[in-house]
């Protein structure tokens, strides 16, 4: 470290640390979605359409997760219904 670095050393941590952190999160997310069956987005759309026939939910209210380990596959469907559920068309 040079003399001048002594005066610079109180800088914030470098941007490389931020890059690493962002990449680790992103790569973990990419990898988790990589092994999912390709029908998932369409499945999510169609489920949403069915639900919308009865309840007014928006796109973000439905999440479809797919998990896989050695012995089993889990398809998890999570639908957040609005608080005052108003049925459509009686």
């Amino acid at each position: 470290m040079g003399l001048l670095d002594l005066f610079r050393s109180h800088r914030q941590r470098g941007t490389a640390a931020i890059a690493k952190e962002r990449l680790q999160i992103l790569v973990a997310h990419d990898r988790a979605t990589r092994n999912q069956p390709s029908y998932l987005p369409q499945l999510q759309q169609e489920i949403l359409q069915v639900i919308r026939k009865y309840v007014d939910v928006d796109m973000n209210a439905v999440s479809v997760n797919y998990e896989q380990d050695d012995t089993r596959e889990v398809l998890e469907l999570n639908i957040v219904l609005p608080e005052a559920t108003t049925a459509k068309g009686g």
């Binding site: 470098g14 941007t15 490389a16 890059a19 690493k20 990449l23 790569v27």
Partner: peptide, 12 residues
């Protein structure tokens, strides 16, 4: 600290 290191990239 401006660039990802070899080990960072390897780890990721």
């Amino acid at each position: 600290g401006e660039m990802l290191s070899v080990n960072d990239v390897r780890e990721i």
